[in-house]
Each structure stands twice: as structure tokens, then as C-alpha cells.
Design a protein around this nucleic acid. Sequence first.
DNA 1: TAGGCCATCTGGTCCT
DNA 2: AGGACCAGATGGCCTA
Length: 306
Amino acid sequence: MTCNQSSGAFRTGWSINHLAKSVKPEHGDGEDPPEYRRTDGEDAGEVGGPRKRGSRKKSGSQSRLDRVRLRRIEANARERNRMHGLNTALDSLRKVVPCYSKTQKLSKIETLRLAKNYICVLGEILGTGKRPDLLTFVQALCKGLSQPTTNLVAGCLQLNARGFASEPGGESFSLYPAFPHQHQHQHQHQHQHQHQQAPGAAGCGPADGAGPLRPLRALCGPCGPLYDTPSPDCPSPLDAATLSPPLSFNGIFALKNEEPVDYRSCHYGLRYCSINQGSSTGLEPYDVQLRGQFYHEEVNKPFQNQ
DNA sequence: TAGGCCATCTGGTCCT
DNA sequence: AGGACCAGATGGCCTA
């Protein structure tokens, strides 16, 4: 029996008796695990030489061995439960962190790192009373995170980083989402270019090409827009009237899709996030292309020297 | 195939 | 004595 089988069996409600019959197979081939082979102090005294063992003594030792074995099995079960509780808590944490996907869970360590970053950001916001710009926000969130996680977080943040990488080493950024009505031709070809698009691929939105970092007005929650002075260039399709409500997070930031996006099928390349799928808002799925390496480096650059 | 992640087992330590 | 907690070891699964 494998570990997985064991855990599966546990999840389906193994009794201690079941466990007792399935003592760790890795030690394998019917051989008892080390502890069960080990003799306790009483038995250790017998190691020195041949010694007659009465049946009474033997049965006592046997029962003691059984007790040890049972305790170990019980301890294993408790330890499993403890770890399951820990994992449950981690799942809870994943759900309140600004990047949640049922299909591609953050690893434990990345969850903790992201949560820590998030707490720091929120603390900073509380302390200063100011909302950070999107780039700063993402940078802070992704501090110390792995590249895939950085990409995942950015994806959850609805970032379009194509402009980000429009010029290798360039200084322009675009954080606008690319809506199909703006770039329908792009959308049609994105799938076939998933793994081929050059760093200089076409950007999107009015910020495409050159220009300063601009806010993503899609990041508007119930508490109002993330930015006090939304860019006048921000096109009307992003107006609140057409925005889908799901882009909200705890009333603070608009960060998450209610419908978790499965990024498994679009690692590092083009990603198609569907907001409010099939809604009456008229919004079609839009892409949040992320150029893995370059994006990761850009996001983490400010922190690399810290 | 290597590396990352994970679940589990295990023994040690500390606490009640 | 027994439970909680911890860290090391191990093996399975998945992905690049």
C-alpha cells in the first residue's frame, strides 16, 4: 500500500484497527518497521545471551510490544489529523489571499509568503491611508515569490503585462486588460501564439507602447476605484457600469475572480481570464498575458537589493 | 529524468 | 503516561 492509498483510506474513515493492519508498508515486504523490531528495555536485557523464556514472560513482552505498536499507530493517526488540520487552515488562508484558484493551488510555502506580503501591504495601507499604485501593489505582493507564483498572482490581479515586456529592457508598462472589442484580432490569434510570441508583441489599450504606468480601472471594488484619479485614457468599457462585480476582494481591492481560473493549461504564456462568464455585461473573456521571466524580473527588481 | 511538492511515518522533546 | 509539536526520512506524483 502506498502513502496515498493510506491517506485515502484515512480520509474515508479508517479505524485504528484498520490502521493496525496496515503498518507502514515502506518498511516493506512484510517486514516490521524499525520501531516494531526494536526491543524495549525489558527485551534489551535479553540480548546478552541465551535465556530461557517462559511463556508467561513472552506473552507479557508480546503484550507490551502490542501496546507500543498500538500507541505508535494512534500517534500516526493523530499526526495525520494534525497535518490535515494544518492543511485545512492553509486552505482557508489560500482563500483569503489575493490569489485563489481551486485548480491550481499555491504551494504551502508560497501561500505563507503571499499572505505575509499581503498583510504587510494592508498594514502599510492602514498606516499611510493611501492606496498603492498597481505596480507597487503587485511588487509588494510578489516579493520573494517564485516566478510561477508571481505570474499566477499577476494573473489573478487581471494584469496584462504585454506592454510590460514590450521592449526588452524598456521602460514602458501597460497594465490595461486587453478587451476583445479593442483587440479582437489579437484575441483570435493568441492561442496559436501561446508559446511563440516575441517579447515585443503588440500591447494593448491606450497605454500600449510608450507611456507611464497607468492604473487598471478594472480594479474597482465596492468601495470605489483603486485610484483616486483614474486615467482619463481609460476606455469606457472599463467603466463601473460595465464592470462585473466579481472583481472585488473583501471590499478593499478588486483582485479575484469568483470563478477560479485554471492556469494549468496556460503556464507562462497567454492566459485567458474570463470575468463574469456569459454575463449580460457584454464583456468577453480577455487576456492577461504574462511574460514569465521578464515579468517576474520586473516585478521583483525593486526588491532584489533589499 | 531531475526537481518540487506533498503525505505519511517516525522518534525525540516538551508539556500536562 | 500520553498527547502535541517538530523535524528528518521516505516514497509517490507531477511537470519542465
